[in-house]
Simulated scan of single mutants.
Amino acid sequence: MTTQTATEPEAHVTALAPPGRFHHLLIAEWIKLWSLRSTYGVLGVGLLAVVGINVNSALSHADRLAQQPELPPAPPPGRAELPQMLFDPLASAFVDPARQLLMVIAGSVGALAVFGEYTSGLIRTTFAAVPARRTVMTAKATVMAAVMLVLGTVAAGASFGVTQAILQEHHGMSIGDPGALRAVAASVLLAPLCALVGMALGALVRHAAGTVVAVVGVLLLLPTLFMGETYRWVKEIGNAMPLTAWRALVQNPERNYSVDKYPVSVTEGWIVFGAWSLVAAAVAVAVVHKRDV
């Protein structure tokens, strides 16, 4: 009789919590993400701020260029072209402050999707309903990456389209110009990359303030520690950071006057993007599977 009493609750729980199908988990994670009002506010305001910063940069450049004489299309014979005199319209579409803001927003929202469930205790309910933790985190990462991919597409597309329209009279670019499509694609993919990094840090730290500090430190501050070119190994570590790779990918090939001793190539930039995304997703899944809730 005692054995029957002990086993009945376990069987009952198993019957109530069968392993969820993956598409059910995707729907559940989608509902979790958008049930928070902060999601709408952070992503909406962040999107407007990112596009606004880029547009303001383009307006400032357009006003400055309108007040100075037009540069000759080619340097006079026997004289070298001065790089500092050439205006790069692509740089106005993707300025550093706007992209850094988007990185912090994407990373913080990704982290919140993980540590928010731990701080509220919802993670226990989730894992009680679906004991397959790896599957749950994979679904969470899939939904987060998809949402941030849309956010990055809107931010990068609007920034490029509006800024180049403003700079139309000052050699504004089209999406078919050399380097334009690559720059837009890199800016689009930077958002889901940062969100996955935020999820990994959220799974490791599991504390709101600590995770946000870690997101800023890893995505923005850490690259600045490896900017010197005295030692090649230091610069190579810096080249492996997402922010450095993004800057290399958005460079205009017709206005690239980089003097770096160890520059990041386009191929290396894409490799960095892919490696960080895969490693971050793997860390989030592995940590949640092994650590107690």
Rank of each mutant, 00 (worst) to 15 (best):
P9G: 07
I271P: 09
W34R: 09
V266D: 12
I105L: 05
Y257I: 00
Y257N: 03
N56P: 01
V184G: 00
G116V: 07
A280K: 03
T119C: 10
T135F: 07
L189N: 06
H171C: 05
A248C: 12
L196S: 13
L82W: 04
A275N: 01
D88M: 02
V250N: 03
L48A: 15
A91P: 00
G107E: 10
V272A: 04
R247S: 05
A165P: 10
G217C: 05
E236K: 08
L204D: 09
L181S: 14
V104P: 01
Q164M: 11
V130I: 09
P97V: 01
V287D: 08
A58D: 02
S35G: 15
P75E: 12
R255I: 05
A195N: 03
I271D: 08
W270T: 03
P9T: 05
G176D: 07
P89W: 02
G52W: 03
T224S: 04
A248T: 09
A200C: 00
R182I: 01
Q251F: 05
V55G: 08
R206C: 10
A91C: 03
P178F: 14
T119V: 15
T126L: 02
G78C: 07
R37C: 11
Y118V: 15
N56I: 03
E8L: 14
A106G: 08
P253Y: 04
T39N: 06
M144A: 15
T135V: 11
P75H: 08
R37K: 15
S120Q: 12
M227Y: 11
Q168K: 09
A15R: 09
A282Q: 06
P178A: 15
L90E: 00
A145T: 13
A245W: 11
Y262G: 02
I271V: 15
F160W: 09
T39P: 08
H12A: 11
L102R: 02
A185P: 11
F115S: 06
A284G: 02
V283N: 07
V55S: 07
P18F: 04
E29I: 15
L86I: 07
S258C: 12
R134I: 07
P72G: 02
L112R: 05
G161A: 13
M227L: 10
S120E: 09
Q67N: 13
V55I: 15
R255P: 05
G46W: 14
V114T: 13
I105Q: 01
A200S: 01
V136S: 05
V51N: 05
G228Q: 13
P178G: 14
K261E: 07
L43E: 04
L16F: 09
A209R: 13
V266M: 11
V216M: 13
L16S: 03
G20W: 03
A203M: 04
T224L: 05
A49G: 00
E10N: 14
H61F: 08
T5I: 10
N252M: 13
I31N: 01
T39W: 08
A155Y: 06
P83R: 09
H170N: 10
A6F: 14
R206K: 14
I53S: 01
A248W: 06
H61N: 12
L181Y: 08
V285I: 09
P77S: 01
V264H: 15
L59V: 13
H289R: 14
S159V: 03
S265T: 10
V162M: 04
Y40M: 06
T138V: 07
V114M: 14
T126M: 04
F22E: 04
V42K: 02
P76Q: 12
L196T: 13
A208R: 05
V212R: 00
V150Y: 03
V197W: 10
T119A: 14
D292S: 14
A209N: 11
